[in-house]
Deep mutational scan, measured.
Amino acid sequence: TTVKVNGTKYKFDTPEEAQKFAKKAADKYNLKVVVDGDDLRVE
């Protein structure tokens, strides 16, 4: 599972880890998590 934040992709072994990271990033930058198929985007 990958998470894309500000054009940078981060790869995670499990969707749970990816979800946690995406949520933290979204909170930090005051953005929202967008599900894109198997991957997540923070925008």
Rank of each mutant, 00 (worst) to 15 (best):
R41H: 05
K9R: 12
T2K: 04
T2Y: 13
G37H: 05
N30Y: 08
V35P: 09
F12L: 02
A25M: 15
T1E: 01
A18R: 00
Q19K: 11
Q19N: 08
G37V: 04
G37A: 04
K9I: 15
F12M: 00
V5S: 01
V34P: 01
K11E: 10
G37W: 03
L40V: 06
K24P: 00
G7L: 06
D27I: 09
A25L: 15
Y29R: 07
G37Y: 03
K28E: 10
A25E: 11
T2E: 05
K4R: 13
D36V: 10
K32P: 07
Q19W: 15
E16L: 09
A18Q: 00
P15S: 10
D36T: 05
V34L: 07
E17V: 03
T8F: 13
K23P: 01
V33G: 01
V3N: 01
A25K: 09
Y10D: 01
D36Q: 06
N30M: 07
A22Q: 01
A22R: 01
D39C: 15
K23Y: 09
K23R: 10
V34D: 04
A26L: 04
F21A: 06
V3R: 00
A22I: 04
V35W: 14
K24M: 14
A18Y: 00
A18N: 00
V34I: 12
V5Q: 01
L31W: 11
V42R: 02
A22F: 02
Y10E: 01
V42F: 05
L40S: 02
V42Y: 03
E43Q: 09
A26E: 04
T2F: 12
F21P: 01
E16W: 07
K9M: 14
K20A: 14
K4S: 14
K23A: 10
E17I: 04
L31P: 04
T8P: 01
E17P: 00
F12G: 00
K9Q: 11
A18M: 01
Y10R: 03
Q19S: 08
T1W: 14
R41N: 08
K11Y: 15
Y10K: 02
F12H: 01
A25N: 08
R41L: 13
V3M: 00
A18C: 02
D38S: 11
A22N: 00
Y10M: 03
Y29H: 13
Y10S: 01
D27H: 08
K9W: 12
L40Y: 11
F21D: 02
N30D: 12
A25W: 15
V3G: 00
A18S: 01
L40P: 02
K4C: 15
P15I: 12
N6P: 01
V3S: 00
V42M: 06
L31N: 05
K28Y: 14
L31Q: 06
D36I: 07
V5A: 03
K28D: 10
T1L: 09
A26F: 02
G37M: 05
A18I: 00
V33K: 00
K32L: 13
T1M: 10
A25F: 15
P15V: 12
T14W: 02
K32H: 11
